[in-house]
């Protein structure tokens, strides 16, 4: 008996009386759960802020199906969120391989742990690549739009309500306002963002010449569709409100509508992507430890279980991002 220990506390039989492990979880696992909880609250904060902004601009928020409608090798086909659904499947499946790796760890089956962890890393890498592709589509844009004085967006549509791209509206060639100022030409510390390839005057002239064109505003009607103005109002809006051209999206302007939409898209999917990336890095480290036999010697694959918890959490967050960004 340790001489410094208290002989009797009177709480020996009690679960929370001390000297026991009431949660029956190791320190590492418990801390992983605490981290996941706080991270979940961080993501909830972001998604709730997204909800706040969306409620504020609920009459003019972009329609996700129109923004995310690309699919690899199916250029020009309208495939709303199929690619994101595929990404969701990839992530869920990588979760399955992860939990199979954890299960193999319980049976101290090193080879199976190696196989399943490798598959998980592969799934994570594919997901990251898909997200990069999604971002590049979003940034480069598709149809282009005209910006108004108040920072709203005017898009183009034909009489059937189908979207029309800037290049089909404008008269003449893509000439641009002037040459883009880059660091390599002129002062080295000064540059500017890529200039639009058409001038506003080209767009106005082309719009006036084609009777079939209409303006599509950000406003949503009661069916949740974007409002299409009649011909005379369209001309009025374009000539009196338009101040410039937007192609694609960045942090301050985007052709899809409310700039906040792009900000939240970059921030939330970016922060999630950063989690996937760090998850892949941690998985790779643990993967090499497994290969080296670290956990075999330790007699327990609990480390695989802990990284597994993190990986499932990343999947869990994506389930919510998928719903609130792409579906609702």
């Amino acid at each position: 008996m340790d001489t410094t220990a208290v002989a009797k506390t009177g709480t020996e039989g009690k679960l929370w009386g001390g000297g026991k492990q009431p949660l029956k979880a190791s320190y590492g696992k418990l801390m992983m759960w605490f981290f996941i909880l706080s991270d979940a609250l961080t993501f909830s904060g972001f998604l709730a802020a997204y909800g706040f902004s969306r409620f504020k601009f609920s009459t003019e928020w972009p329609i996700a199906d129109e923004v995310f409608n690309h699919f690899p090798f199916l250029h020009g086909t309208d495939a709303p969120m199929f690619y994101v659904a595929l990404m969701t499947f990839i992530l869920i499946f990588s979760s399955v391989t992860m939990v199979l790796a954890v299960d193999a760890g319980h049976q101290m089956n090193k080879n199976k742990v190696v196989t399943y962890m490798a598959l998980t890393i592969l799934g994570g890498a594919i997901f990251l690549g898909s997200q990069a592709w999604e971002w590049s589509n979003f940034i480069s844009g598709e149809y282009g739009a005209v910006e108004t004085r108040s920072g709203k967006i005017l898009q183009f549509a034909n009489t059937e309500g189908e979207r029309v791209a800037l290049e089909d509206v404008a008269t003449g060639e893509r000439e641009g306002l002037r040459q883009q100022h880059t660091e390599s030409e002129g002062l080295w510390y000064m540059d500017e963002k890529a200039l639009p390839e058409f001038t506003l005057d080209q767009i106005k002239a082309g719009f006036a010449a084609n009777e079939d064109l209409r303006i599509r505003t950000m406003k949503l009607d009661e069916n949740g569709e974007k409002t299409i103005l009649d011909r005379s109002t369209s001309l009025d809006y374009l000539n009196n409100r338009g101040i410039g051209i937007i192609e694609g999206a960045n942090m301050t302007k985007n052709e899809y509508g409310a700039p906040l939409f792009a900000d939240f898209f970059f921030f939330i999917t970016g922060f999630h992507g950063f989690h996937v990336f760090s998850g892949v890095v941690i998985l790779i480290i643990i993967f090499f430890n497994v290969l080296l036999g670290t956990y075999e010697k330790r007699g327990s694959y609990e480390m695989v279980e802990k990284v597994g918890l993190y990986w499932h959490f990343v999947d869990l967050v994506w389930v919510f991002v998928f719903t609130f960004f792409y579906l609702v």
């Binding site: 949660l23 979880a25 909880l37 979940a40 609250l41 909830s44 709730a48 802020a49």
Partner: peptide, 28 residues
């Protein structure tokens, strides 16, 4: 997991997230 751990994690998250969402969406 034990009941204790489950409640520590799940109840905390569910309660705080519901509160946060309700406040922000009503305000929005």
């Amino acid at each position: 997991e034990t009941k204790g751990l489950r409640r520590v994690v799940v109840w905390t998250a569910v309660f705080l997230i519901c509160y946060l969402i309700a406040i922000l969406l009503i305000e929005g």
